[in-house]
Design a protein around this nucleic acid. Sequence first.
DNA 1: CTAGAGTCCGTACCATGGTACAGAGTCAAG
DNA 2: CTTGACTCTGTACCATGGTACGGACTCTAG
Lengths: 136, 136
Amino acid sequence: MVQSQAEEFLPIGTFARKGGVGVETVRYYQRQGLLRVPKSAGGMRRYGPEDLRRLRFIRHAQSAGFTLSEIGELLELDACDDRKRARQMALTRIDALDRKLAELQAARSSLMRLAVECNSGGSGPCPILSAFDAWR
Amino acid sequence: MVQSQAEEFLPIGTFARKGGVGVETVRYYQRQGLLRVPKSAGGMRRYGPEDLRRLRFIRHAQSAGFTLSEIGELLELDACDDRKRARQMALTRIDALDRKLAELQAARSSLMRLAVECNSGGSGPCPILSAFDAWR
DNA sequence: CTAGAGTCCGTACCATGGTACAGAGTCAAG
DNA sequence: CTTGACTCTGTACCATGGTACGGACTCTAG
């Protein structure tokens, strides 16, 4: 019991490392209200599995393109079980993702074209600007 | 001639609008060295078609995920015709784009799952956190 | 010729997402 | 019990990509 506590309740440095972020970032998330600040008996604060889950959630949601404040909202929704709003946020974000995906795919093919033309060693000037002229 | 100049050489406000940005943004790009500051005979500076092309290039390259400083480099490469470097930058960016695309696609499906589960109205708590638990 | 819109230039400020550092306290191994 | 690593709190600073503002000047339509 005491042993498992020692293993599962980590000081901030270990906690941050497990979450793939720096200590300062953990503190930053705390300041933003995304992570709780565990109570301590005067000494070091310790972070449990739920904290870790939450930290990882933040990173994942971030990679889904949510801003930190949206992530804050998601975490609150999770707590108060507001499915309707959560679903709506997910759909909104999916929409934004679809637009972003299309944009990045367009960018990718423009760049592809640029790379090919630059490689062809043709006679004209390197068509960087022109590669973006007929954009979309 | 004089007429075509009047049409093609625009004051900054019109120029910015045609480029889809604000006046302040044009000035910002100038401060960053991405756009020239046209000479003026004491009065208003005027922007020609090449400036517009450059401004639009900046926006397009930005949507391809280049940072402003990378865009600066691209513009220089265009000027000095350094194909090798340009090609290399394009390939590097394509690589980054591919990674970003994969990430966003993963995010999209996680969100899809979340939206579906939230809608199902099942009995458990709304599985927001869990939607990101098995991430990738 | 005058009013009002637009321009010029410098500087300040903003949001986002961190990152760094100082000074004091705490913990754990030798 | 000391030493060195780590932690705590607060505050400052950073890069990126803008956005706003003040005061002077200029341009153009009426």
